[in-house]
Write a protein that binds this DNA or RNA. Structure first.
Length: 425
RNA sequence: GGAGAGAUGGCCGAGUGGUCGAAGGCGCACGCCUGGAAAGUGUGUAUACUCCAAAAGGGUAUCGAGGGUUCGAAUCCCUCUCUCUCCGCCA
């Protein structure tokens, strides 16, 4: 949620930002509506505050009069207070109506894109920030997509997942399960080396947490919901890990706060079916190591660059061809100010697969989370950032496809000590 | 799941209807004292919204959450949540 003060003081910038997100002129008027609602709320509050102050003063007077035994005078004032109280009810409700309307509208406004975000409407308009300069792996004729390789080498089984649970829940087996676990350990070890504190959070969160990181109300349909206990299965570790700092006033000395967490992620992915989601390309449950930072506003973009380097390093070590995209205004997530996507080349499918999304949310998320720090006497919102480092399922897909040989799948060197084998045959 | 006890500021802990955003202590910050430190001592030390051009200084709300009684609630009543103890169940 944007800060109201930002809209008040930087209205023109906000308008330009929404234009970059392809808001129509009509839709942009939401800003005026928000400011109007705020104006209404404020004037109602001033009146209410004055009313309550007067009631309080009179109530104190009544106390004194009663002590002095002047019951008649006290009763006279009581009726004044009662009528003040009647007015207060009305003022309170109009204040509530206005502030609810304001918040409702404010929630419909996405984050203002960073100035470097390219214009555009669709994924085709994303800017290639770092291209892959080296050659792609060349596969022997008859190379298989990863779902075929999975069957051949007994790495994972989607049909078995259907039996146990339903479509989109892969069952990893044998060396496939070991590969999965190896990648998790590798990613966590690398994150620890880069200074991220490891966190093993709950896989279910309450609605307050889901609201604070922005999954509610926007993405309610994307999360699995356990009605009986009013809990949501997390779609990403970002939710519980970032919420560690909900309502916390951070000591400035502790910036940047760096945390990493491995979790399974659960996504309903309602309405996405078809060939492009075959195999591990899109599943309901997958493993992911997430990196999260809470940073000082002045240095959050430096931290973002560090996160990009971290993710690049992982892909380099896994010897996977990848490129980095800077997302355009139309393709960026609702809450993000600047997002870079990492895509690995999936050689048999001959397509790029998104394996990481690294974003700076500036204060958009922290405004709902209330992650703040003291800047002198002022309390300011911190910046939050996060990125996948990395999402497992698609990495596995690319590793299988790119490294297939007639003898089997040759794993990159970095994984050998984790897996205990070099070849999946 | 059953029975009981409890929830107050960064922490501990007073406060059972009036001037209580809340005693006292600890912690923390700054000053005095000291050669330096400890001890001692003085001052300050919540958050949100809001008034004021800003600062200074006001106002309102907040004592787990929500509702109610009352002129007035941390204090009384109701609902919910959470924590602790005992029992039951159980990786």
């Amino acid at each position: 949620m944007l800060e109201l003060s930002f809209l008040k003081n930087n209205k023109e910038r906000a308008i330009q930002g929404l234009k970059k997100r392809n808001f129509s002129d009509e839709a942009i008027q939401v800003i005026d509506h928000i400011l109007e609602a705020d104006e209404t709320r404020r004037s109602a509050q001033v009146e209410l505050d004055n009313n309550l102050a007067e009631s309080k003063r009179l109530a104190g007077e009544i106390g004194n009069l009663i002590k002095q035994g002047k019951a008649v005078e006290a009763d006279a004032i009581k009726s004044t207070v009662s009528s003040l109280k009647e007015q207060a009810k009305d003022l309170e409700s109009s204040m509530k109506v206005a502030s609810e309307r304001m918040e409702e509208l404010l929630l419909t406004v996405p984050n203002i894109p960073h100035e470097s975000v390219p214009n555009g409407k669709t994924p085709e308009d994303n800017e290639v920030f770092q291209a892959w300069e080296k050659p792609f792996p060349t596969l022997a004729p008859g190379a298989l997509p990863h779902w075929e390789l999975a069957k051949k080498h007994n790495i994972f089984d989607l049909d078995l997942g259907v039996k146990l649970t339903g479509a989109g829940f892969p069952v990893f087996r044998g060396k496939g399960a070991r590969l999965e676990r190896s990648l998790i350990n590798f990613f966590l070890d690398e994150a620890a080396r880069a200074g991220y504190e490891e966190v093993a959070p709950p896989l279910m969160v309450n609605s307050a947490s889901a609201r604070a990181t922005g999954q509610l109300p926007d993405k309610e349909g994307q999360m699995y919901y356990v009605e009986r206990d009013d809990l949501y299965l997390i779609p990403t570790a970002e939710v519980p890990v970032t919420n560690i700092y909900r309502d916390v006033i951070v000591d400035e000395k502790d910036f940047p706060i760096k945390m990493t967490g491995y979790t399974q992620c659960f996504r309903r992915e309602a309405g996405s079916y078809g060939a492009h989601v075959r195999g591990l390309n899109r599943v309901h449950q997958f493993d992911k190591v997430e990196i999260v930072q809470i940073a000082h506003p002045e240095s959050s973009y430096i931290q973002l660059e560090g996160m990009l380097r971290h993710v690049s390093g992982l892909l380099d070590k896994l010897e996977l061809p990848y490129r980095i995209l800077k997302l355009c205004g139309g393709d960026m997530g609702f809450t993000s100010a600047l997002t870079f996507d990492f895509e690995v080349w999936s050689a048999a499918q001959e397509r790029w697969l998104e394996v990481s999304s690294v974003s700076n949310f500036e204060t958009y998320q922290s405004n709902r989370l209330k992650v703040r720090f003291k800047d002198g006497n002022k309390i300011r919102l911190a910046h939050t950032l996060n990125g996948s480092a990395l999402a497992l399922a698609r990495i596995v897909a690319a590793l299988l496809e790119n490294n297939q040989t007639p003898e089997g799948i040759r794993l990159p060197k970095i994984l050998h000590s984790y897996t205990g084998f070099e070849l999946i045959d």
